[in-house]
């Protein structure tokens, strides 16, 4: 009964996450436009985009690309499903990573130099954000004594009180995962980049639609990870997520795109340092 309930929760969560992810993407565009004094597209524009992409004539370069797009979407969906089914954090993380890896694999399976450079940069981005997320998960485990999400909901004080620096580190990882400035290195939202759309250059039509949906799910998953930091009240959780996302948009709008060299030096280094300080602190108060 317990397992069935969890499965049901996961399925409902996944269905909701797809919609919420799309609307977050729409809201993102709306607020970004507002910051630039524009009107921006309608709120449901991401859905229109995906539907339009879905209706395009199939033009995949090779079979690998199609397979990788499916696997990326499945991995992202599975990780969101596992999150809502309140599974193990480490398992969720690994499944999420598989999605990202397959996206890169697809980009490497074609001959386009843009796609290749984008894929290499995507790998470097993964190299930057994954340690940060792992450290956050380790921090959670140190605090609660378990990798399970259910154990976080059993807490009576928000995690943020004891892990503020780890939250900042998670924020850095979130910016990279959102593909926002200054970290829109491997592929930016709008293709105005030296490598066009980087890792996404060769995906078209349905494959691109799938990757877009996978991106929404990834965003929801990371927002879910952020929400764990204020698990005690719904209002606090919502406020924390709103402030976090607004901060992301703000940073996106006040900074230029930087290079991967800078990212590794100035994002990975300080991120890991912040996380370590927080872990030591957690160790000390134990």
């Amino acid at each position: 009964m317990m397992i069935l309930g969890k499965l049901l929760l996961g399925v409902i969560g996944l269905a909701l996450a797809t919609f919420i992810g799309g609307f977050i993407s729409g809201l993102d565009r709306k607020i970004t436009a507002r910051m630039q004094s524009r009107f921006g597209p309608p709120l449901a524009q991401p859905f229109y985009d995906v539907l339009k992409l879905w209706g395009k004539a199939p033009m995949a370069v090779n079979a690998w690309l199609v397979l990788c797009a499916y696997l990326t979407l499945m991995a992202s969906a599975l990780s969101v499903f596992l999150f809502f089914a309140q599974s193990d954090l480490l398992l969720i993380f690994f499944v999420m990573t598989i999605g990202a890896v397959f996206q890169v694999m697809g980009a490497l399976s074609v001959n386009s130099p843009f796609s290749h450079v984008g894929a290499q940069r995507e790998l470097l981005q993964m190299f930057t954000y994954e340690p940060l997320i792992i450290l956050v998960i380790i921090g959670i485990a140190m605090h609660t004594g378990s990798f399970s999400i259910a154990s976080i909901y059993a807490l009576d004080t928000p995690l943020l009180y004891s892990m503020p620096f780890l939250y900042v580190a998670l924020g850095i990882a979130f910016t990279i995962k959102l593909r926002k400035s200054p970290f829109d290195i491997s592929a930016s939202h709008h293709g105005h980049q030296e490598i066009v759309r980087g890792v996404l250059t060769e995906y078209t039509g349905r494959q691109l639609a799938m990757l877009e949906v996978a991106h929404w799910l990834d965003v929801v998953l990371l927002l879910g990870l952020c929400s764990l930091f204020w698990s005690t009240s719904a209002i606090g959780l919502f406020l924390l997520l709103a402030v976090t996302y607004f901060a992301e948009l703000f940073v996106d709008n006040v900074s230029a795109r930087l290079t991967w060299g800078w990212m590794i030096k100035r994002a990975l280094g300080p991120g890991v340092a912040l996380a370590m300080v927080n872990l030591l602190w957690l160790y000390a108060i134990k």
Partner: peptide, 15 residues
């Protein structure tokens, strides 16, 4: 500004 990925500056200048 758009060349180095600073979209809001680009919009502001064009305004």
């Amino acid at each position: 500004a758009d060349g180095f990925g600073f979209e809001s500056l680009f919009m502001a200048l064009w305004r």
